[in-house]
């Protein structure tokens, strides 16, 4: 049970990440002007969808063994892709990045994904059925990485592989930075929670005294109420 409890967040988050990747690739497929790129993004999205399905299945297996109380916390709802930041509120990467940066991002993150799958592989064991599937997913991630590299160098022949290395290093640092930021944010959140609660208590005490009855609509023509009022 303890192992299940520790595995649930890993598969939950990984499934989110893979599904978000699939959506990013699908958006890229729809946004490109090149037929060949559309095909490439389409196939990539299909792979990522399959990876997501696999991790959701793994999540489901573990969730089955967990208590209802714990399992409820790991029930997937699609909007959490946005609230958890796997898809940016600003839009898909293809819409917010330059194409060159987007490809470099894919190139780097496919490799980073592969390394995080290595940790999952250690968790489930290489020789298990799940381990074998993870191994094949890792191969696919490497393939995506290779394709992104090829794509990048063929579209930007003036750039040298070492420049791609710079992109990779930059993205690796960014990723580490995001993790540190996230961890600190969580710590900060824990530290500040009592303060937030105290402020909410104060605001709640004021809200208790609010009389909202005058905003009731009973007996009123709804079409006559000011259309500029937010109350």
């Amino acid at each position: 049970m303890k192992k299940t409890k520790s595995e649930l967040p890993i598969f939950y988050e990984t499934a989110h990440a893979e599904l978000a990747s699939a959506l990013e690739m699908l958006a890229a497929c729809k946004g490109t002007n090149s037929q060949n790129q559309a095909l490439g993004y389409f196939m990539h999205a299909k792979d990522e969808y399959n990876h997501a399905r696999f991790f959701f299945n793994m999540l489901s297996k573990r969730g089955n063994l967990a208590s209802t109380e714990i399992a409820r916390d790991f029930r997937f709802t699609p909007p959490s892709l946005l609230t958890k930041g796997y898809i940016s509120n600003k839009g898909f990467l293809i819409d917010t990045m330059k194409l060159k940066d987007f490809i470099a991002f894919v190139y780097t993150n496919e490799l980073l994904a592969k390394s995080s799958f290595e940790n999952i592989l250690n968790l489930v064991g290489c020789s298990t059925e799940e381990g074998k599937i993870i191994s094949s997913i890792m191969k696919e991630e490497l393939r995506h990485h290779g394709m992104a590299k090829k794509h990048f160098l063929s579209h930007y022949p003036a750039l040298q592989p070492w420049q791609l290395m710079i992109y990779r290093t930059r993205e690796t640092i960014n990723n580490k930075g995001r993790k540190i930021y996230d961890a600190n944010l969580k710590l900060l959140d824990q530290l500040l929670t009592p303060l937030y609660r105290a402020m909410a208590f104060l605001a709640g005490t004021i809200a208790k005294k609010l009389n909202l009855n005058e905003f009731r609509r009973k007996g009123k023509n709804l079409m006559n109420i000011s259309s500029f009022s937010i109350l």
């Binding site: 929670t193 937030y196 909410a200 605001a203 709640g204 005490t205 809200a207 208790k208 909202l212």
Partner: peptide, 19 residues
């Protein structure tokens, strides 16, 4: 406001929602 007002009537149980 309607959600906040209702939750405020049930403090401290609703403090998490209010926050």
């Amino acid at each position: 406001l309607h959600i906040v007002k209702e939750a405020s009537l049930h403090m401290p149980k609703s403090l998490k929602l209010l926050t």
